[in-house]
Simulated assay, not measured.
Amino acid sequence: MAATDFLETAQGRRLAYHKSDGAGPTVVFLGGLKSDMEGTKAVHLEAWAKARGQAFLRFDYSGHGESSGKFEDGCIGDWHEDALAAVAALTDGPLIVVGSSMGGWQALLLAKAMPDRIAGMVTIAAAPDFTEDGYWASFSDTQKQVLETEGYVELPSDYMEPYIITKRMIEDGRQQLVLRDAVNLQFPVRFLQGTADTAVSTATAVRLVEHATGSDMRLLLVKDADHRFSDGPCLEIIENAVLEVMGAQ
């Protein structure tokens, strides 16, 4: 297994990453909330890209995986800064951005920040604006009061220990919302969504594709696929979506 490399950012964070050289465009994988770059989809896509001779980058946001910091101290804006820093320092030329769950939100923020670099986008169970439309919207009055007084609330997770959701994450998330303004994606986009996903609903996927504008945009619903979207057939669907947006099919 290749050794992990590290990038020091202008914000003083130490980001862990794996980069594979190859032909462009570079495929960049953006992981989900509390996920890391050793996840099934990230590692599979890296191997797939290497087999094709395609440039590839996966990394851990601060507070995730091998990167510095604690998850509880981070927020959407911090992780957006991490993505910008990694892409600016570690890639050249056009990018194919693949974002999973929260990484789908990060992909949209990246496209907004550097539209000229994005050649294509694939999202997997994209979760834009989830801090506001998911967490805050579902909080009870008691939870909102606890958030205000204690600075955080704990939420159960289907996949790991409870999430610590901080007041800072909620407040920062409001500065990063993408579904309240225009989402103009002038490059090929494939939104992938499982119908058995209990973390991100198909309604969220439909809302995103209806809200965004672009000349080559498709939503693919996969029956019975869950939020992980990482079994063999789903991984093949991701591969094909990346090929589509690269124009290789």
Rank of each mutant, 00 (worst) to 15 (best):
A2W: 14
T4R: 15
K19E: 14
K19Q: 15
A23R: 11
A23D: 13
G24M: 02
T26K: 06
A42Q: 00
A42N: 03
W48E: 15
A55W: 01
A55V: 11
F56G: 09
R58N: 13
F71P: 08
I76W: 05
A83G: 05
G93V: 01
G93S: 01
I96L: 02
L108I: 10
L109W: 02
R117S: 02
A119W: 01
I124S: 14
A125V: 01
A126K: 05
A126S: 13
A127K: 04
P128V: 00
E132V: 10
D133S: 14
Y135K: 02
W136C: 01
Q143H: 03
Y152I: 01
S157C: 11
Y163E: 08
Y163M: 09
K167M: 03
R168G: 09
N184D: 14
Q186V: 08
P188Q: 08
R190K: 15
L192M: 08
Q193E: 13
T198C: 14
T198M: 15
T198E: 15
S201E: 15
S201C: 15
E210I: 03
A212T: 03
A212W: 11
G214Q: 07
S215N: 13
D216M: 10
D226H: 10
F229T: 00
S230C: 11
I238R: 07
E239T: 05
A248C: 08
